[in-house]
Design a protein around this nucleic acid. Structure first.
Lengths: 343, 343
DNA sequence: CTCAGCCGTTGGATCGATCAAGAGAGGGGT
DNA sequence: ACCCCTCTCTTGATCGATCCAACGGCTGAG
């Protein structure tokens, strides 16, 4: 910090430290990167000089020489307005913390809809980032294939649904295990007619979550036919689906693919003067802020996003060491946050 | 992109382009940075070569030479669990987009509680970022003073409450105008006993928002005494404050400093079998996802976060040009998102 | 006393772009 | 014909850290 008080605004360089400590540049470099190569007294002298000048290696110079930026690129996808899905926040926070602990920083960039790989291409070609984290691995997303083609190191949050043979690193949450947890919770409470409100059939994630519900129901020999609905992920869709199901199938509980849909169910219950919890149980997915603050609270499946972030950084570390260690995918188990909406 | 198909994984350099185009390195550099210096036919020839090789300037090398990283650092502060405040998401998204359009990228870093300026210090000393965006400008935050001391360019989201004489660039939202808008909206609906639930007195932001409520009330010669409460920003605090106010002051409407507090009011109304909207009106602040999806919806003051982001980037551009153009602060007006909770 | 062996240290070259200065061609004025 | 100026492009040096090969001093064996 000493230098900041000076008039000149140029930070000290390695050469400045070397001069002050009475050693050569390489010795200072070793003191920073390979301290074990120095005699203890020399090391101490250099470290004193570093502290006195407030020296910190110039990133650009280091990046240029080592051909690594120590930056991880991630496309920032905002949550949609009018939904309850703001999981990104919790995830990004842990990601920032974890990458920071490992000497990396997170670089955010935006994507345009007409050119989904544009941002990736620029950053890769200008060697601005060492690797990417890909978060939107929905069906038909060309990014994973593009990155693989261009030999860009990356870790995906999400399984390679469409092609299980692809060998890239990934971390995901077992959605089916989550909904199974939710359904079992309701079954244990005595419910037998448990309805499902999920997403359209072309969503792999949606079908995965739905599978957890059917698995739990069938494990207790309970029927699922007529009890399921597949809609868009909006509050109004959830509301309408709940109304139809209540009329036609008389369920006593709902398991939903998202908190947004669960919120829709609450709307319908409110319309009909039914209390969520005592009258009809509802479970959502994502443990969003909405689930946490709504009167009574919504029981919801909570993804271990902190753990996901840690695993992603671990996988990145593996990829960026030489030679790259490509571990298999990692599948993490969610938990259930129980609140008033399930009794 | 051509190079990516090759065996060697090294991207083409400026020298490669120069050789292919039959010109010198400097000419290629000019073609990229100062095209007007070249004869049209030479420019075209160089651009063809650039396209053929898929050349993109190496960031590290450019950064080293120009002493600029084209990165903007921002500490990522996650929303608290159990609150409704997830404004960060919308803000960050526009920020990423806007910085990207201006040739910058956003670098996120984490802060530790015991060393609030640690992250800033590292990035600044290693010349990893050109400037900072500071978002948590609450009272007693040492970052602004520290950055000023160290002559680090930065723009703050938030006014310099504690010291109006400081001359750094800032962008803020006129919170008082927002609550005044909210209060006027309720007054126009015929309410006269409008209560305020806000934050503790040491919060400048909270006092600012409160001032909008008093201003609107006094403008119509309505009393405010006994109608205000100052609590922590949690749902339970809002709930308790609403209960006390209902018992002691019989308000017909509430204006709250946050959606979290508004949500607390809804809890109390639910407890007492009162309908929000028809019986008691409620207005929140932030237009969070919670306000948007709760049954009926919560009327809420919406901060123009997209506009804030744009203004911040504009201010950054001014700071980073030579000589720095330090414009005055920018104060933006919020809007009111009207929903069921206010009628 | 000499020499191999080892450790810590040294100067020089390097990464890839930009800055600074200069060279060569062409044009107009005197 | 001469000079000077402008326009266009080229050459060498530079940013700051790291890699590389070699060098000096010390120890211990012969």
């Amino acid at each position: 910090m000493a230098w900041s008080g000076r008039v000149a605004l140029t930070p000290p360089t390695l050469a400045d430290v070397a001069e002050l400590a009475g050693v050569s540049r390489q010795t200072v470099s070793n003191a920073v990167n390979n301290p074990e190569l120095l005699r203890p007294d020399t090391l101490a002298r250099v470290q004193d000089a570093i502290a006195e000048l407030g020296y910190s290696p110039n990133r650009a110079a280091r990046n240029l020489r080592t051909r690594a930026s120590h930056l991880i690129g991630m496309k920032f996808n905002p949550a949609q307005e009018g939904t309850a899905n703001a999981a990104m926040d919790r995830f990004v926070h842990t990601l920032v913390e974890t990458t920071g602990e490992n000497g990396y920083h997170l670089l955010l960039f935006a994507g345009t809809t007409e050119d989904p790989v544009g941002g990736y291409d620029d950053l890769l070609r200008s060697t601005a980032v060492d690797a990417f984290i890909v978060t939107d691995t929905y069906l038909g997303n060309p990014q994973v294939a593009w990155l693989t083609d261009h030999r860009a190191p990356f870790v995906a949050f999400g399984r390679p649904w469409d092609n299980p043979e692809t060998s890239h690193a990934w971390v995901d949450v077992d959605g089916a295990a989550g909904t199974e947890l939710a359904t079992d919770h309701l079954l244990d409470k005595g419910h037998t007619r448990i309805a499902w409100i999920g997403w359209r059939k072309d969503s792999f994630i949606g079908e995965d979550r739905r599978a957890g519900w059917t698995r739990a129901m069938h494990a207790r020999n309970l029927p699922t036919t007529g009890l399921a609905s597949r809609v868009e992920d909006t509050v109004t869709s959830g509301r309408e689906a709940a109304a139809v199901l209540l009329d036609e199938a008389q369920p006593s509980a709902f398991v939903c693919a998202s908190d947004t849909l669960a919120m829709g169910v609450l709307h319908t219950l409110g319309d009909r003067g039914l209390a969520w919890g005592p009258d009809i149980a509802v479970v959502g997915f994502d443990d969003s802020q909405v689930a946490q603050v709504v009167p009574g609270g919504i029981t919801s499946v909570r993804q271990p996003l902190e753990q996901v972030a840690v695993e992603i950084v671990k996988a990145l570390e593996g990829l960026l060491t030489t030679p790259p260690i490509a571990g298999p995918g990692v599948l993490l188990a969610p938990t259930l946050a129980v609140r008033g909406s399930s009794g």
